[in-house]
């Protein structure tokens, strides 16, 4: 199972940031992201200012930097993509260690990396300081369509169940002497993923039956708790 409290992205503490209402935090994050994305690449001081704001918030939240840093790994694919840009982009080239790199590519890569990092860090901070349930209630207060909020609620509810199932399947595989180490093992892992998908799909059907059995008729009459 996940952490003892809340979710594995959530860091239990009692900072002002933890106490702030979820809908304000969501609105603030979205606004922050829009501003970051809209800032031209060349405005370096602006990005420094954003980073300082984020760093201050992290300090205020009491979430350890290492905790956030480990979870920043999700950004890797974006970083890899950004690192490729200077090699594939066109335009005037500069020589770096004897390799010709596209100058617009370098600028785009730098911008992409900065913006992605700020965004991921901001989102992680929101996740670390907000319980999933509060986050969903916050989204509801922000008038996000209730079907969407319900879907996210299901995801939160079943994430642990599915990851648990995945872990049990891996344990069972490994008990029979299989450990996925190199790409030749991927087909087996893929088949496990397929089996997990089928199981989750079937569970979805069963959950739906259980909901119907309690009088659910597809309307969004649930809403937030009164």
């Amino acid at each position: 199972m996940g952490a003892a409290h809340g979710h594995r992205l959530h860091f239990h503490a009692h900072s002002p940031l933890h106490r702030a209402p979820a809908h304000l935090k969501v609105a603030a994050l979205v606004t922050f992201m829009l501003v970051v994305v809209a800032t031209p690449h060349a405005w370096v001081p602006a990005f420094v200012a954003y980073a300082v704001v984020l760093a201050a918030l992290v300090a205020l939240s009491g979430v350890p930097v290492g905790y956030l840093a480990r979870r920043m790994v999700v950004e890797t694919p974006v970083l890899v993509f950004a690192a490729l840009l200077p090699f594939v982009a066109t335009g005037p080239e500069v020589d770096v260690l004897g390799i010709g790199l596209s100058e617009p590519g370098l600028v785009a890569a730098g911008g992409l990396m900065t913006k992605a990092t700020l965004g991921v860090l901001g989102s992680l901070l929101l996740a670390a300081t907000t319980e999933p349930r509060d986050l969903l209630a916050g989204l509801e207060r922000l008038r996000v369509p209730s079907q969407l909020v319900q879907i996210m609620g299901f995801m939160v509810r079943y994430l642990d169940v599915v990851t648990d199932e995945l872990r049990r399947m891996r344990t069972a595989r490994e008990s029979r002497g299989f450990t996925a180490r190199d790409p030749r093992h991927w087909p087996v892992v893929a088949r496990s993923a397929g089996a997990l998908f089928i199981r989750s799909f079937e569970r979805g059907e069963r959950v739906h039956l259980a909901m119907i059995a309690r009088g659910y008729d597809g309307s969004a009459r649930q809403g937030a708790r009164p």
Binding site: P132, R133, L136, G153, F154, V156, R157, Y158, V161, R203, R206, V207, L209, A210, M211, A213
Partner: peptide, 13 residues
């Protein structure tokens, strides 16, 4: 109806 797997039945937060 109480279904066999409580994880199917309990889905709210």
């Amino acid at each position: 109806i109480v279904f066999q797997d409580p994880d199917d039945q309990l889905f709210m937060g």
